[in-house]
Design a protein around this nucleic acid. Structure first.
Lengths: 247, 247
DNA sequence: CGGCCAATTGACTGGCGTCAATAGGGGTGG
DNA sequence: CCACCCCTATTGACGCCAGTCAATTGGCCG
């Protein structure tokens, strides 16, 4: 979770060797490594992508949590998706020319930075990899689909339940769930901003769910107590693909 | 709006020649044309993509309106984005392997169908075009970002105002706004499903906005009366890119 | 120990949902 | 051509879920 040092070379990258990710050929990895500018650590709260700027770099989240959001003039903020290790950052902004969103670190974070021009050149050199880039873009859209659906259609209790179920799915796919417990470093305010609820109501609803015996959540330690209860409350769920690409 | 017959060949396609779209080289168009299975007309209400199915085709909306949505077990539905001529349909589903969403026609519609395998082969043959596919995917994500932000953070009045402002931007880019008026064939229930509001409250809020003199909307005919009022109520806006690709 | 910020709880308010009834418009069979 | 029907749009009444205001607690750091 903390700023684990990233390996110097993609070939020895332990993250991409995880079960959750599709394998690449050594040549593909070599070309990707050539496009890589190196890794960089950021502290919790740091801004990875500033909303509104042009020239956004492309990066892969190597360790830690981040989130993508849009800020409004009135000071409110919609969190569009949470980002976990292996997730691609900045593709949409790099494509469109400017960032219509911001990305911020939730925890200490390490990212792998890429040279944008060299990533673009993958479209000519490695068709499979450029295909996977598009795949990752589609997945990014799907994550926002979740956010929109949950915050648009469900009651507060259901929103929280669905959100947690979907999140736990993602964590499990990354091997970040041990038994029934995992680390979820999301403050209440961020939960509220993701789900379209007020801070106060988020807190109260969270308490209610814990009184229902669905889970226990203190600090960053989350323990799922009764998945059946949570599922019944949720009324909405979606499974994570078994294998996915990583740049 | 109705089922205009699509041209037999992409080279003579009047849609792609519109100002809103990037030009392609004749060779690019020829290869795309080779991947094209032909056009097909659907009546209003028809399902273009059924939620949950695999083997989703890739298509470009040629004429008419459609929308992308997710249905929930309880019968409610979140509309994720509205689709206009030139928009790509089915990419996310084709990528991920199955459709986590449905797509339905709002009006009579004509789409251009593509052979998926031949589209995939573009990744090897025409890097620029595969790049544009990714661009379109990113744009799809951005449209959902709008939906999530609007329905997550704004009051009912602001939701309606922002939604209409953003929509009018898109229509204007396509040359579908004459003076201050345009055709918006979105029923109240669909508006409600897109904005996360109840049908009744959507209707009442819409009435209130018209009493404020912001616009007039009867049947499918929409007339913008006071953009300044609408902007003030909205508190959120986003501009459409000036030029974009079309497959 | 004092300060600061996230988390929590209570009280009150209001925006939005739900229920229910009425109007309108277009299509269809008599 | 008219009567009827169905579906969408509209309006009113009422209740509740969730927002706002405000005060207290608890953990962490200087």
């Amino acid at each position: 979770m903390g700023p684990l040092p990233a390996p110097a070379n993609c070939l020895s990258c332990p993250l991409r060797q995880q079960q959750a990710f599709l394998d690449k050929t050594p040549e593909q990895i070599r070309v990707i490594n050539d496009a890589r500018l190196g890794s960089r650590a950021y502290p919790a709260g740091a801004t990875l992508v500033e909303q509104g700027v042009t020239d956004v770099p492309i990066m892969t989240l190597y360790s830690g949590w981040a989130f993508r959001y849009r800020s409004l003039d009135d000071g409110s903020r919609q969190i569009l998706s949470f980002l976990l290790p292996g997730d691609l950052i900045g593709l949409q902004a790099a494509m469109m020319g400017d960032a219509e969103y911001g990305v911020e670190c939730l925890t200490d974070v390490v990212v792998c930075l890429f040279n944008r021009a060299r990533i673009w050149s993958l479209f000519g050199k490695l068709p499979e990899v450029s295909f996977q880039l598009t795949w990752l873009s589609s997945r990014g859209e799907m994550l926002v689909d979740d956010t929109a659906t949950v915050s648009g259609q469900l009651s507060a209790k259901s929103r929280l339940s669905s959100f947690l179920l979907i999140l736990i799915q993602r964590l499990a796919a990354l091997g970040l769930v041990q038994g029934q417990s995992s680390t979820i470093p999301i403050p209440r305010q961020h939960l509220a901003d993701a789900l379209g609820l007020s801070l106060v109501h988020t807190v109260k609803t969270l308490r209610a769910l814990q009184r229902d015996g669905a889970f226990k959540w203190q600090g960053h330690r989350f323990e799922l107590l009764d998945k059946a209860v949570l599922k019944k409350l949720a009324g909405y769920e979606r499974d994570e693909a078994s294998k996915r690409p990583i740049l």
